[in-house]
Structures are given as C-alpha cells and as structure tokens.
C-alpha cells in the first residue's frame, strides 16, 4: 500500500465514528436546555464492583494492540478481526489493513489468551503494531491505538508504551477522547522505572504486576500513577505454535484487568469509563469497606455495610 490515507474503513460494521480531535460536539455549557433535555439512563454497576451471576464478557468488544495474535490458538480461539498497521517506507503513509499474518513474537497471543480466560465469551480483535520495521514504531503504535479508539472498541488492551515524549501530547488527547467515548484503554506501566506513555495518564486504566500467586487477585495502588496491580509473575500464557510458556511482566497483568473490565461491562453495558474504574477500585483485594467514621454513633446505616468513599 502506498496510500497516505488514514486508517481505512474496516470490513466489519462500525458504529458511529468518533472524532478524536478537539472541537467536535463539545458542550461548553448548558444554554437553553434543562435537565429534561439531557436525560441519562444510568446503571449503578455491580455492588462492590463485582458483577453478580455469569459475567463472561459476552457482547463486549476487546482489541489487543500488540504483536498480532496467532490464528486459532486453542487457548485464544477465533478472532473477530485481525489488522496490521503498515507504514510505507517511501511516502511514510500509515494504513491499517486486514491481515492473516498472526503474531510475530508471541506477546500479543499471550495477552489475548489472558483476556480469553478471564472473559471467555468476549469478542477479541487484534491490531498488530509491532513486527514490521523497527523504525517508526512510535508512529505505528499511535496509529494502531487511534484506529482502535475510532472503531469504538469497548476495551483496548495496550501492553506497550512509548518513551518518546514527542508522542506524549497526542497520546494524552487520544486517551481522553477514548475515555469520553467509553472506550477503556487498559495500559501497562513500563517494567522499568522510566517515563513512558500512555499509562501515566489518568484517563486510562494503568496496570503493573504484583508478586502474589493468586491468579485472580487485583490490587488498587493508593500511590499512583500506576492505579492497579494484577497477576504478572510466572503467568502461564499461550505462545506461538499452539503452545504455552510461563512469563513475567506488567504486560501480562494488564490483559487480566482488561478481561475484568470485559466481564463487568458484559453484565452492565451502560457503565461509563469512570464507573468501570470505580468497580475495579471497589473490588480490589486491598480496598477495605470500613464503616464511615461518624460523630453520631447511632447511625441508621448498618455498620460494616457502608463504604467510606470520601477522598480523605
């Protein structure tokens, strides 16, 4: 492809395209309209952040932005869509094209497998941003993530980050656009203490690894920027050739949290991105739901069943 068009339209039906630049549909203030003009049908979300009953991810569209996903890996199953970001060597034009190339490394397959076992019935799409040429990976990552946000996936798993500060601002505005459009970007913190993006931004759900053996444990970090920790040490994951390996890193904690998001959303599809983050917070193993300290001990609320959600 030598076209310099932006991401081409995907073959599957796409919901309304969303503008990711500023100036589109901005509501600066409510002029000439009242509460009745902006009704919102809310879903309070699951109690304490844990969906009741079977929450399998059914109906939730998840996109893995990574090295591709091996086709028909038994632990991943069929993909709903497989795409690659291609940069033309001469023109520098970047396109997103359907692909059958699978995974160039195994990493994307591992992420998809963790999402699959966490939310077995979710729809998994792959957009490959690694494995073509080395140079320009920042551009390609940016283009792949932008494409995923434009497709309005419910959850985007990004077990990658870029250290190139020239992409920081663009990534920041893209992350904010995704947040408002209810596309939840679940992003890995870098494995080493370096400055990288987009996990640093409050509009994404950022994930690092804890060192516990419990494969279903997630924790809230009271001292962000990394907001959550998931299981990322010695994780058994699908790899190339239909096999599995064991591996370690924030990369593998992230798809677990992405899978949790898919589970919650399948039971409560109207939840917003901030509600989803709150559900993860409430269900984190280290978040205690202590009774609200009160100067009136004879509170009518049963002790032990109240939550102190105040900031301090």
């Amino acid at each position: 492809m030598t076209t310099t068009e932006p991401a081409q339209a995907p073959a599957e039906p796409v919901r309304t395209r969303v503008g990711t630049g500023p100036g589109q549909g901005l509501t600066w203030s409510l002029r000439g309209r009242g509460p009745d003009d902006v009704p919102v049908l809310a879903d309070a979300g699951p109690p304490l952040g844990r969906p009741a009953g079977p929450a399998t991810g059914r109906g939730v569209r998840v996109c893995v932005v990574d090295s591709g996903v091996e086709r028909d890996h038994p632990l991943v199953g069929p993909l709903a869509g497989s795409w690659v970001v291609v940069k033309d060597g001469e023109s520098g034009g970047i396109t997103v094209e359907p692909t059958t190339t699978g995974d160039t490394c195994g990493h994307g397959t591992a992420c998809a497998g963790i999402i699959r076992r966490t939310a077995p019935e979710c729809e998994i799409h792959s957009v490959r941003v690694l494995g073509e040429r080395f140079s320009g990976t920042g551009d390609i990552l940016m283009a792949g993530l932008r494409w995923a946000v434009e497709q309005r996936f419910d959850v985007v798993n990004l077990s990658l980050s870029t250290t190139r500060t020239r992409f920081a601002q663009e990534l920041h505005s893209l992350a904010d656009s995704a947040y408002f459009a209810r596309t939840v970007i679940v992003a890995s913190a870098h494995n080493t203490p370096v400055e990288s993006f987009p996990w640093r931004f409050a509009s994404v759900i950022s994930v690092g690894s804890h060192q516990e053996d419990d494969p279903e444990l997630h924790l809230y970090n009271p001292d962000p920027p990394v907001e959550f920790f998931g299981p990322g040490q010695n994780v058994t994951v699908p790899w190339l050739g239909g096999r599995t390996i064991r591996t370690t890193g924030n990369s593998f904690a992230t798809p677990y949290v992405a899978g949790l998001c898919a589970r919650v959303l399948s039971a409560h599809p109207r939840m917003t991105a901030f509600q989803l983050k709150n559900a993860l917070y409430l269900s984190a193993a280290n978040v205690r739901h202590a009774p609200r300290p009160s100067s009136t001990p004879a509170s009518s609320t049963p002790a032990g069943d109240t939550r102190d959600d105040s900031e301090n």
């Binding site: 494995g131 040429r133 080395f134 870029t162 790899w239 096999r243 599995t244 390996i245 591996t247 890193g249």
Partner: peptide, 28 residues
C-alpha cells in the same frame, strides 16, 4: 530481522522480558 522473535519484541517495545518452558515450543 529486528522486529521478530523475543529479541525483536524487546528491541521494539523497549521492555525487558522473561520466558520459561520454551523448549516445549517447537516453533519458538
């Protein structure tokens, strides 16, 4: 090629990586 395999992923992502039980994987 710089983009392939585990070394390729590490080079392009800038992230360290540890994998175990590889020999069970003939296509590794």
């Amino acid at each position: 090629p710089a983009g392939r395999g585990i070394a390729g992923w590490v080079a392009t992502s800038g992230e360290p990586m540890v994998v175990d039980d590889l020999s069970a994987d003939p296509s590794f």
